[in-house]
């Protein structure tokens, strides 16, 4: 009984690693540009399908495919920002929401057209089912552990970039005060392009790890966006490590809910999200260092 519950919580914490990967890119873009990218989830699914193409046509391992897909998505992000989203700057919060919502619909329909409605999966050749025994009765999957480790590495890398590099200082300065940042010589439009490139590079990692963990279809994106959004809000908007904690809280809520009754997993996650919105709307880590 007790081991069963410990196992449930551990699985939830590890699931949080995946949610944190989805949430980080969303949080970064919101922190720097005050834009909620509603196509974030669909872009992760697009990355997963691109990985499928790389695996099937080039015979690559999914992790090797990621080395192709992540830079590709980063380039797509830069182009998307420079050619489309930068045109909406300074026109209020509604235009970016409408445009990214439209982009979400376009991506889903293109994926449906190209890849059909069949569900797909990325096969890494065994690691997704391998596990390590801890203390006799508890078994932890290697792949969820790897996911969490990658999430921590991504967050560490992002923290180093934002905290120490000149471009990171520029991101924080622009997030604080866009006009003054321009007066200091920072080209906000180029910087926003870089931030979107970074965000979509990270979301490509999330998409490929999702595709290894579970099956996905052209329509899997909006759920991913919702979980990422919930993780960001639970953790505290703009807090880098808050996204990991938010992801973990959401993951544990979902696995605990699913253990209580198989249909309750997602619902319990939503209820915890609503509880945070009601009782601590600034999130658990609102006072932590701002992301950008």
């Amino acid at each position: 009984m007790t081991v069963g519950w410990v196992d449930t919580v551990v699985q939830g914490l590890l699931l949080g690693g995946l949610y944190a990967l989805f949430a980080t890119g969303l949080s970064l873009i919101f922190g720097v540009m005050r834009i909620v990218n509603l196509a974030h989830g669909d872009l992760s699914i697009l990355a997963a399908f691109l990985a499928v193409v790389a695996v099937e046509s080039l015979g690559l391992h999914p992790f090797a495919a990621l080395l192709l897909v992540a830079p590709l998505m980063a380039g797509l992000g830069y182009g998307l920002q420079r050619l489309v989203l930068n045109r909406l700057l300074g026109r209020g919060i509604l235009p970016p929401i409408l445009v990214t919502f439209g982009l979400s619909i376009i991506i889903q329909n293109v994926l449906l057209e190209v890849f059909s409605a069949d569900s797909r999966r990325l096969n890494p050749g065994g690691i997704e089912t391998a596990s390590v025994a801890i203390g006799g009765q508890l078994a932890v999957g290697w792949f969820p552990l790897l996911t969490l480790a990658v999430a921590v590495l991504v967050l560490l890398g992002l923290q180093g970039l934002i905290g120490r590099l000149a471009v990171g200082r520029a991101l924080r300065a622009t997030s604080d005060d866009q006009e003054t940042a321009e007066l200091m010589g920072i080209d906000n439009r180029r910087l926003y392009g870089l931030a979107m490139a970074l965000s979509l590079g990270i979301v490509a990692v999330a998409g490929v790890f999702l595709g290894i963990r579970t099956t996905f279809t052209f329509a899997s994106g909006p759920d991913r966006l919702l979980f990422a959004f919930e993780a960001v809000i639970i953790g505290g908007l703009g807090s880098l490590w808050g996204t990991l904690v938010g992801g973990a809280v959401l993951g544990v809520a979902q696995t605990v809910g699913a253990k209580l009754s198989p249909g309750w997993g997602i619902l319990t996650g939503h209820l915890v999200f609503l509880a945070v919105l009601l009782f601590r709307p600034q999130g658990l880590f609102a006072k932590a260092r701002r992301i950008a």
């Binding site: 200091m184 010589g185 701002r290």
Partner: peptide
């Protein structure tokens, strides 16, 4: 600029370093 417009998320030294971004 008028009103100093110091970047609140940056330390004193980081504020100075941002000044050299395109210097």
């Amino acid at each position: 600029p008028e009103g100093r417009r110091i970047f609140p998320s940056l330390s004193v030294e980081e504020n100075l370093e941002v000044g050299a971004y395109r210097g």
